[in-house]
Design a protein around this nucleic acid. Structure first.
Lengths: 232, 232
DNA sequence: CCATCATCTTGACATTTGTCAATTCAGCCG
DNA sequence: CGGCTGAATTGACAAATGTCAAGATGATGG
């Protein structure tokens, strides 16, 4: 592992405040690897052998049932995923695949548990990671139970606008199939929802989206920090 | 606080393995109180001043938006709630109200954080509680995104049957309004869904439900441990 | 530059779910 | 016992969302 990579990983929230000893032990036991796009890395139901950390790229967490699948979350650096399965020493509840070429750190579950026993700062970092992940999915759950598909799309666009800070001009970071699945709708319906948003001054051209009236869009979306704020 | 109550609380998963010193400090700073039914205790958006532990009774966690509300979870003893808000020192994402007369332990957030700094066993208990809560809501999220309302109801009935161990005969623990909201549907639709289930040998009489063919119901529900198992 | 493949879009239609209003039902209190 | 209240059910209808099939579009490689 090169030193620039090491320092990148050292800065991850998961390692905030941990001792160098703990960090060295964890990293020595881990694997840092590139994976090509569209590779399935985790299968729901399998025992949780590793904690994954996204160092670069983008991962999709999804679940399957009845021949359908649905996207539960998209994970970008710097963030771990499937932490809860590792902590409870049980099976993964979600599957994961790369959306793009991605660099991941794989930390053996056993080493995570050992580090928790010996380094309180690490345990604290774990607690924060878990709490953050929990709040994120609670928000997503509220988003789905309280809003229509069009409202979810409108809020998604407003969130992206804030993230990309694009002065009302954003680029969709994923293909529309994936976006539709994340928003809990079919691709056909996503197309129609974009059509409906035209009357709110939303112009779409491939992945380029122009939000010509943030006011109009906000009036429709009614965003609230209790669902839409990213916090951190 | 009486000694029988104390020992009940001492047995909570949240306090598993913590030192007597930590436990005493926490309990001395806390309030153990009865609350009547239908009392709102927590408002989403308010700063997280307390961690709540359900010692007796039943709590409903819900969220509001656009004049609607939806039930996110029902909490029974022994379980804490809104732990994540306390750990991140932020605002509650969910509101809470009693469904029945309930006894709650209110632990000041500040004391939780202090105890985490001084007692590693407590931190570990917190980690497990969080991980369990996270997995629970991930399952709920999958339940909603991957299943129809009837499938959700069918699986709910099967889960209750397992919990109540009723040989195909169960009693709904809540009124149907609440059940409908938990399952993400309207009360009218819940009625109709019960009607549909008649052809799967489900008889309903007030809150008494007879599942006369678990096989038929399972064929419809297609339960999976990755959504429906309670684990712990 | 064309052929090809995948993605996206559109239209017609089916299904699911919600809404509103009316009615029934059950518990409770005087 | 009667009447009140809230919960639950039912029916008729509307709206939201999904499905299937057909085209359009856009990127890619020979």
């Amino acid at each position: 592992m090169r030193s620039e990579e090491l320092s990148l990983i050292r800065e991850l929230p998961l390692f905030a405040g941990v001792t160098n000893t703990t960090f060295d032990k964890l990293v020595r036991a881990s694997y840092l690897q590139f994976f090509p796009p569209h590779v399935r890395l985790v299968n729901e139901g399998d025992p949780a052998d590793f904690l994954y950390v996204v160092v670069e790229g983008c991962l999709e967490l999804f679940a399957e049932a009845n021949g359908h699948d649905t996207t539960v979350a998209l994970v970008r650096p710097p963030s771990s995923f499937i932490l809860a399965a590792v902590l409870t020493d049980s099976t993964y509840l979600l599957s994961a695949r790369t959306l793009e070429k991605s660099r991941l750190l794989l930390i053996p579950a056993e080493n995570i548990r050992q580090a928790m026993d010996s380094d309180t700062a690490f345990t604290h970092a774990i607690v924060h990671d878990m709490a953050w992940a929990y709040r994120t999915i609670v928000k997503s759950h509220k988003n789905h139970k309280l809003r229509s598909t069009i409202e979810r799309l409108a809020n998604y666009l407003l969130s992206e606008e804030k993230i990309q800070n694009g002065q009302g001009r954003i680029t969709l970071p994923h293909d529309k199939r994936t976006l539709a699945s994340l928003l809990g709708m079919t691709p056909e319906n996503l197309s129609r929802a974009f059509g409906t948003l035209r009357q709110y001054q939303v112009e779409i051209n491939g992945r380029e989206v122009h939000l010509n009236s943030l006011e109009d869009l906000r009036a429709l979306a009614k965003p609230t920090p209790l669902i839409d704020d990213a916090e951190m």
